[in-house]
């Protein structure tokens, strides 16, 4: 794992930092950046990489262990869980949260659901089409 390329997290100052770190991990797992069974960085490395206090890194790992996102066996370094049910639930949790946020913001506009779905379908399709070419080949 290229720890040097650890994706940056733009923090907000009102949510607890350790929960923002946990959520960041969930996103990395859901997007496949972190894979099931993969070793996670040590507390010290994580603190340095994410520019957080080592105490906060510790607290974030503790929370992730409680939520069973990571597992520790004996003295070996912690790994991302391989439990399929947990991994699925992470994805649905993030998806649920994103949709929830979306719904809350459009509800104020009082738009009919059919119109929204149509709009989502259109935008979503266009986004994929725009994203695909840049994935493989070199940039023009």
């Amino acid at each position: 794992m290229g720890i040097d390329e650890w994706p940056e997290l733009a923090m907000n100052s009102r949510d607890p930092v350790y929960l923002q770190v946990v959520r960041h991990f969930k996103e990395l797992i859901a997007t496949g950046w972190l894979e099931a069974g993969q070793h996670v960085p040590s507390r010290r490395e994580l603190a340095a990489r994410m520019k957080i206090n080592p105490n906060t890194a510790q607290k974030a790992y503790k929370e992730m262990e409680e939520q069973q996102l990571i597992v520790t066996e004996g003295n070996s370094p912690s790994r991302i869980t391989s439990d399929a049910a947990t991994l699925r639930s992470i994805r649905s949790e993030l998806l649920g949260e994103a949709v929830q946020a979306f719904v809350e913001s459009v509800r104020r506009l009082d738009a009919p659901v059919e119109e929204l779905v149509e709009l989502v379908r259109e935008k979503y399709g266009r986004g994929e089409a725009a994203a695909e070419p840049s994935e493989g080949g070199p940039l023009p």
């Binding site: 100052s13 010290r44 994410m50 520019k51 957080i52």
Partner: peptide
């Protein structure tokens, strides 16, 4: 402040603008 230099130590820091270290 994100390194082992502060680990297991007690650090007391004064500041009048918290911005740089709010998360730390």
């Amino acid at each position: 402040f994100t390194s082992q230099l502060v680990e297991d130590r007690g650090v007391l820091i004064t500041t009048h603008e918290i911005g740089d270290i709010e998360h730390l």
